[in-house]
Design a binder for these strands. Structure first.
Length: 296
DNA sequence: CCTTGAACCTGGGCGC
DNA sequence: TGCGCCCAGGTTCAAG
């Protein structure tokens, strides 16, 4: 499910509720997510105050007062939702009884805020997501972050950086951009969209965008622009809601209405003046959507 | 080094 | 209504 814009949308949804709240209980209903949760997870978290919420690439980071951080990766189908204690019920009681919770609500954060109790439920049907706990000061040592590339929005990503990484590479652009060590946070949707915007075929080899001298050719400059723009626009739109991604309040993102190519097989290419149609081709086990007429 | 394919897991959609 | 197949936003690991 979630690429960087969806995770950022989740972070923004959770932050107003979680920041400053105290974790009164951590309910681990199903500790066998993609990786087992730490044995002492609940013990180390309960009683702590949440200092703030962050994000790195596709990882949500929940900073606790004692210097530890909870890491959460949503895999393909993970989502969080917020439940305030029901106003119409007895104060402090939740409108939804536990029996009405979904069978894929695997982890529940019970929070105490000045206004009352709140529950944050982590739902993940496929269980490709996972959580972990680490010392914030040693974040770079965590396996999830070691070797991770720069964020696509921000100053770290520019054409010179990608030129250095792409030089001499025969690897297709599609898989190069999906590589989290190259750029962190892109996934199948936004790679397809960025390549369409830049007019580049997903099958073109990355090295062809770099000159002999190792400088970025024009298409690479356009590609960097396209990546930054598509990610920024998607964040602005609250991410893309296809199957699973919902915002923390249950509402949908709407960037999927802006897809030019992703999941648009057979549609006419939306580039002005282009006569092509959108194709789907499996590349490295993933669907690439692109227009063979204007993406070269 | 490289690339591809399978694996992890559940559910939705479609054709029959 | 049901079955079987294909597909899915991610990541890792084995095999060629």
């Amino acid at each position: 499910m979630p690429e960087l814009p969806e995770v950022e949308t989740v972070r923004r949804g959770l932050a107003p509720v979680m920041e400053g709240a105290r974790i009164t209980q951590l309910e681990l209903r199903r500790p066998d997510l993609r990786f087992p949760l730490p044995d002492d997870f609940a013990a180390r978290v309960e009683g702590q105050r949440i200092a703030g919420l962050g994000r790195r690439a596709k990882y949500l980071l929940i900073d606790l007062d004692d210097g530890a951080t909870i890491l959460s990766h949503l895999g393909m189908s993970g989502s969080f939702r917020i439940e305030q204690a029901g106003q119409s019920d007895t104060p402090g009681q939740f409108h939804h009884e536990r029996s009405k919770d979904g069978k894929h609500d695997h982890v529940v954060f019970h929070l105490q805020r000045p206004e009352g109790a709140v529950r944050i439920l982590y739902n993940d049907p496929r269980r490709f997501g996972f959580m972990d706990l680490f010392e914030r000061a040693r974040m770079e040592e965590h396996p999830s972050f070691r070797g991770l590339g720069p964020e696509p929005v921000g100053n770290a990503l520019d054409a010179a950086y990608l030129a250095a990484r792409f030089k001499g590479k025969a690897q297709p652009l599609k898989s190069a951009l999906l590589d989290q060590k190259m750029i962190a946070g892109l996934g199948n949707i936004y790679v397809c969209e960025a390549l369409w915007r830049a007019g580049l075929s997903p099958e073109r080899s990355a090295g062809t965008l770099v000159s002999e001298k190792g400088t970025a050719k024009k298409p690479l400059v356009l590609l960097v622009e396209a990546i930054r723009a598509v990610i920024a626009e998607a964040i602005e739109a609250g991410g893309s809601s296809l199957r699973d991604h919902i915002r923390t309040d249950g509402s949908l993102g709407y960037f999927q209405h802006s897809f030019a190519v992703y999941d648009q097989e057979g549609e006419a290419c939306r580039k002005p003046g282009c006569e092509g149609h959108i194709l789907r081709r499996v590349q490295a086990g993933r669907s690439s959507f692109y227009c063979s007429a204007c993406q070269r």
